Amino acid sequence: MFRHRLRVSGQPDLPDPHPAARTPLSSHGHTTMHIAVIGMGLLGRAVAERLHDQGHAVTVYNRTAAKTEPLRARGLAVAPSPSDALAAADCALLFLTDAAAIRSVLFEATPPEALRNRTIIQMGTISPEESQALLASVTKAGGDYCEAPVLGSIAEALAGSLLVMAGGTQDQFDHWNPVFRSLSSAPTLIGTVGQAATLKLALNHLIAAELTAFASSLGLIQRSGVSVDHFMAILKTSALFAPAFEKKLPRLLTRQYDNPNFPTTHLLKDVNLFAGEARHRGLPVTSVESLRSILEDTIARGYGEADYSALFETMNPKD
């Protein structure tokens, strides 16, 4: 399944994933692979750049083609369709918005034969049930599927310090480790398909919960005239501190939420997914519903595409 790739007739002149003279190791000391990255959002683009810089042959595809032009200028191959991207690759990494977008690209815009003998690695945030359904659909089409959602954003992707959480078999994890190792110093096999997706939802729930609590506490500090420096100094020496607090503090103090690392709309989508999974597992979701309301209010204020730290505008609105 991993090594035998089929050509789809009528494809453009994209890189051959198995040229006769292929160099097995890149200058970075790992196996060179031909990788398609599908979805050129903030994280997908950064991952494509990182893999290219690590010596892999990268082909990118995005439904809005204009987003691929900066990568073409950097020397990455640009595919005109998902089928072309798959034909050029050992594996395809998905960084699409949600499961509906994945199905649209892989199954509505792509003929079934394009998935045959291809490996799909889902790296975005979707529910475990959605990931398991994709496993069934890709397998039915003759392909191979695993998940590897990541924690981290643009800076971590470019530095190769993402936290990669794989869901699949040990053989899949071992085979695609050169890809994972290009993005993370310590990729981890979490379990079967669906388990890594669950872990990612749990972590993204904490993103919303922690920053909401921090924003509320900071608002109280500011409105009470307590020194923010004193607040942060005490917080940083306590067990309460989370690095995200210090990272987001400049945005909150200046109320500048442009150039997002993670848009508010995406965080709301993930909180909704977490709520659904928690409810399915018999957990109370009262606190999650509060987070959802805060994010919806923030989006209603016009901050949907801004960095999610804009939830500060809901927790501590201007007088």
Rank of each mutant, 00 (worst) to 15 (best):
A242T: 11
L211V: 11
Y145F: 15
H28W: 04
T64I: 07
P250A: 02
A233G: 05
F180V: 01
S27C: 09
R281H: 15
T254V: 08
G191S: 03
T192S: 08
Q195E: 15
T110M: 03
L151Y: 12
E49V: 10
L253A: 13
K140V: 09
E130L: 04
P187T: 00
R45A: 11
G44V: 01
L135N: 03
G29K: 05
V150Q: 00
L189A: 04
T237I: 05
R63Y: 10
Q172N: 01
P317Y: 05
S293R: 13
L106V: 03
L183R: 06
R22D: 05
D297R: 12
L42Y: 04
L249G: 05
L218M: 08
D258A: 12
A65H: 10
L115M: 06
Y308H: 14
M165P: 00
R7W: 12
T23L: 15
P263C: 07
K140L: 12
G304M: 09
L94Y: 04
S153W: 15
T314D: 06
M232R: 13
P19M: 12
I190P: 01
H175F: 15
S287D: 15
R301A: 10
G55N: 03
V150A: 04
L218R: 06
L43P: 00
A77N: 04
A73M: 14
A159I: 07
L273P: 01
T125P: 00
V47R: 01
E130F: 00
R74S: 02
V285P: 03
A275L: 08
S104M: 10
A155M: 14
E69S: 10
T23H: 15
L51I: 06
P15S: 03
Y308F: 15
T31M: 07
A20D: 14
P82R: 02
G225T: 09
S185H: 12
K236C: 03
P80K: 09
A244Q: 13
S9L: 07
G194Q: 04
A148V: 06
A92K: 00
V164I: 12
D53L: 13
A275T: 10
L267K: 02
E113Y: 00
R118G: 05
C91S: 12
A310F: 09
L235N: 08
S217M: 13
T237W: 02
T110N: 06
L86K: 04
F312Q: 11
R223K: 15
K67L: 05
V138A: 05
A20L: 14
